[in-house]
Write a protein that binds this DNA or RNA. Structure first.
Lengths: 250, 250
DNA sequence: CGAATCGTTGAGGTATATCAAATTTCGTGG
DNA sequence: CCACGAAATTTGATATACCTCAACGATTCG
């Protein structure tokens, strides 16, 4: 996990064939607006483990995750850490109107970010309703996700927390692969046990134990430490303690 | 706590001298835009204890809290409940673009709401950048608050949770009364022990015990069950486990 | 005055944290 | 390719913070 100098991808990407074009903050923008955005954008890459933003630092840019996974975390002085967001491709990083970062953002896999210089981006929000509208929509979605997580953190048992996390990851993969979510599903965990613990408000030992328990009970099948098969999504959803249907939208 | 028919206030309020005009969703609107809003607005009152919105119901309106306090809660099938938001004057209720309410909203005191019919309001957002921009700002603030709460729910001890809640309420009162927050402060708890428990992810017994403990330790002074004096805000902040300064913005 | 609501306090149980050690995985260099 | 060390993970033993169940006190309201 060595830290090397950021490197601009050898081929500069064009917004026209960007993989997140239809989901990112620019989703509603007209071609004209996109070409305005293109003038203030630049790419950055981060290696797995690298910090993208330090809480308290000046924010020179806001950005969209193009590929890879990053985490948003908040820490107390004594080291207790809570993940407060998981950033997937198309997710937005940074808050227009704020000069100082409030959270740590860390790459958990190699990450490619599409960055916009903050000042020009803020100016553009003021004059581009499509941008503000899309950002509002995305922020409302994030708020919903945060609230769902508050229920998990405040009221769910350790087993339910693990099952919830697994089903969220599974659901995500399902939506990518366009599979019927009731079938059996297979995916890789993008997080270490410690990162899962920070997400779920548990210790890594408890995470490990509960994963072992779910495995023992046949709810999941493990191949190695990270490769998970869920033979019966219904059963997993049941363990998560959510409403039977689990997540209608998204 | 009887439930009576909603009643429009005897005097219909005018946006011009509305107490939340400068903080609510309409804060950035021009006089013209406000008068457009005025055409689709109506007032509703709710008594303490009354439900304002049921999760799953159709949302006919979105609204601003004008006076009083309401809570946003989420419940699991077995009854476990988590508060995911606290609504104070000027806060916004409802999500444009969504037809069905995702959460329960309940009045904890008598509440006056300034409501907008949802459809026309959504249309107005599309054509009124000032409205979308302000709503974005407010939503970003809520997201920050939700994330701060995630840290509390996931990583703080019961005592820290109580101290955090008290300091948030105290800070709020300070900002209303324009007092120096380092002085001693007095305020009333707007929540029952049970509501506090639902907010903090605790049982009401634990809330009661921790409040007693803070009282025993001289961190707070109780007069009755709800009237609280904090002789030394610094000490309370310390108990909350936050950074020394505690809350720069807002 | 009695019932209902709200809050406090106590005793004991349990889920999860903490501390500790063994085991597996994985990257690196010989 | 293999050996080594570091990191990640699992598992065990024990501690403890918080929950659960229960009883009781205070306040309000009809």
């Amino acid at each position: 996990m060595s830290i090397t100098k950021d490197e601009v991808p050898s081929v500069t990407l064009q917004c026209g064939d960007c993989t997140i074009r239809h989901r990112a903050v620019c989703a509603r923008c007209t071609p004209d607006e996109v070409s305005d955005l293109e003038k203030i954008k630049f790419y950055r890459t981060y290696e797995a483990g690298q910090t993208i933003v330090w809480a308290g630092d000046d924010m020179e840019f806001v950005a969209s995750v193009v590929t890879g996974i990053a985490t948003i975390t908040q820490a107390m002085e004594d080291g207790r850490t809570q993940m407060v967001g998981l950033l997937l491709p198309s997710d937005f990083v940074g808050r227009p109107g704020r000069t100082t970062a409030a959270y740590n953002v860390t790459a958990t896999t190699d990450v490619l970010m599409c960055c916009f210089r903050r000042k020009p981006f803020e100016a553009m929000i003021e004059r581009t309703p499509h941008l503000a509208q899309r950002l509002l929509q995305m922020t409302l979605d994030e708020l919903d996700a945060a609230r769902e997580w508050m229920l998990l953190l405040g009221r769910k048992t350790a087993r339910e927390k693990i099952a919830s996390l697994l089903s969220i990851i599974a659901r995500r993969n399902a939506s990518l692969q366009m599979k019927n979510p009731s079938e059996s599903m297979t995916f890789d965990l993008p997080l270490t046990r410690e990162a899962m613990a920070d997400y779920l408000g548990l210790t890594l030992e408890t995470v490990s134990r509960q994963i072992s328990a779910l495995k023992r009970d046949g709810v999941i099948i493990l191949d190695g430490k990270r490769h998970v098969t869920v033979p019966d999504m219904e059963a997993l959803l049941l363990e998560a303690g959510d409403d039977a249907d689990g997540g209608l939208f998204n």
